[in-house]
Amino acid sequence: MSYNIVLTTAEDIVAVVDAIVAKGEGVTKNFVSKFTGIATDEQVDKAIKMSMELQLVEEDGKTSKYKIKSILARKLVTASSDNQKAAIMRIILEQYEPYNVFKTRYEYTKSIELACSQTKILFEMDSNERDIKSTLISVATYAKALKSEGASLYSFIEEDNNETLINQVLSESAITETTLKQYWGESICSLLSQAIIFSPLSDALLKTKSNQIDTRAVIVYAANTFESFLDQYAQVKGVSLSGKNGIMQKRDALTAHLSKKHRGMIDYIGQIRNAADHGADVDENGQMWNITVETAIIYPRIVAITIRDILHRDNGIIEV
């Protein structure tokens, strides 16, 4: 297998993964750029390439869109603390052979530059040695596997509680998924796509448990889930959504199959999504809407409630 390390940061790699997980389906480079806010096209390209290098992301040869390749990618961006994210990134790094060689060569040579040079030679990379150094240090530092001692000296950290942190991530994920399954019930879960509805909404709920909630990301995750639900619901009802974009237009196309109260609930879901996703509001003198933590916490739960209530109505159960 060939390897090629490009210049990027751990934060940009995580941002790329977050964009793809948030969408819940294949995404374009343009979507990644807009979602992440990474400054230049070149930086976006390099972050995508390195996320592929670490086996987190892959490109669909038919559509040229990017999609998640590893379950570790989802766990990385839904972990509830920096320590948990670091623990997952450490696992990702330890599965990447050039990193293991880089670590071994540094421990032998005690020179970070020489370790990078030898890693490049051993894997016959075209990469610039300084790019190898900067990227590996960035990702390893993010993973809390490496720390600087000053004067170009570093030390690798053996984390005793890494397994405990991973178990916490898996436990929180399992509890969230189980809770959502119990709330919806087996009959509803069987009707919904695991990949584009159940999993992304579980991820949105997990993100609300983070120590520092990324409010915009929570809204995007949950809103994309709900739009995917409308797409699936339209197929079941035989309604064409051709030319319909966004939650509001798709709701209007489904009016005959939705109650007035549920259309009102969908309006709330769509308005919050627009506030999070559409930038400056011309109706508010060009100001940007701030998404509060309270709104972010309740939003994916309202999405879950609305999906359940719409499907229950089809079975004669009227509730909100």
Rank of each mutant, 00 (worst) to 15 (best):
residue 207 K to A: 12
residue 216 R to I: 15
residue 210 S to I: 09
residue 177 E to D: 11
residue 244 K to Y: 13
residue 256 A to W: 03
residue 238 G to I: 12
residue 253 A to V: 13
residue 259 S to D: 10
residue 239 V to E: 02
residue 246 G to K: 02
residue 253 A to R: 12
residue 176 T to D: 02
residue 190 S to I: 15
residue 211 N to I: 14
residue 262 H to Q: 14
residue 239 V to A: 01
residue 176 T to V: 08
residue 181 K to G: 14
residue 204 A to W: 00
residue 207 K to L: 15
residue 238 G to V: 15
residue 260 K to G: 02
residue 178 T to P: 01
residue 199 S to V: 02
residue 176 T to C: 01
residue 225 T to A: 04
residue 261 K to S: 14
residue 214 D to R: 07
residue 206 L to I: 09
residue 221 Y to K: 02
residue 211 N to R: 06
residue 192 L to D: 00
residue 253 A to F: 13
residue 251 R to C: 13
residue 262 H to M: 12
residue 271 Q to Y: 06
residue 272 I to F: 00
residue 268 Y to S: 07
residue 183 Y to F: 06
residue 242 S to F: 12
residue 191 L to H: 11
residue 211 N to E: 15
residue 197 I to M: 07
residue 193 S to W: 03
residue 265 M to D: 10
residue 254 L to D: 10
residue 171 S to L: 12
residue 243 G to Y: 05
residue 224 N to Q: 15
residue 181 K to A: 15
residue 223 A to P: 06
residue 193 S to K: 01
residue 248 M to S: 12
residue 253 A to W: 11
residue 186 E to H: 04
residue 205 L to R: 01
residue 270 G to M: 09
residue 188 I to P: 00
residue 257 H to P: 03
residue 186 E to G: 01
residue 237 K to D: 09
residue 195 A to M: 11
residue 189 C to W: 04
residue 209 K to T: 11
residue 196 I to Y: 10
residue 206 L to G: 11
residue 187 S to R: 06
residue 226 F to K: 03
residue 257 H to F: 09
residue 198 F to C: 03
residue 196 I to E: 14
residue 206 L to P: 05
residue 234 A to W: 05
residue 203 D to C: 02
residue 225 T to Y: 03
residue 211 N to D: 15
residue 253 A to I: 12
residue 235 Q to P: 00
residue 238 G to R: 11
residue 190 S to L: 14
residue 179 T to L: 07
residue 262 H to S: 11
residue 194 Q to G: 06
residue 237 K to G: 08
residue 214 D to Y: 09
residue 235 Q to W: 00
residue 253 A to E: 15
residue 241 L to W: 09
residue 169 V to W: 00
residue 215 T to Y: 11
residue 270 G to R: 02
residue 169 V to I: 08
residue 245 N to L: 10
residue 217 A to M: 13
residue 210 S to Y: 10
residue 183 Y to L: 06
residue 209 K to I: 09
residue 243 G to T: 11
residue 203 D to L: 01
residue 205 L to T: 01
residue 247 I to Y: 05
residue 177 E to L: 06
residue 238 G to Q: 14
residue 242 S to L: 13
residue 198 F to I: 07
residue 205 L to E: 02
residue 189 C to D: 05
residue 225 T to I: 02
residue 184 W to L: 03
residue 213 I to M: 13
residue 182 Q to I: 15
residue 206 L to E: 13
residue 221 Y to N: 06
residue 270 G to H: 08
residue 259 S to C: 07
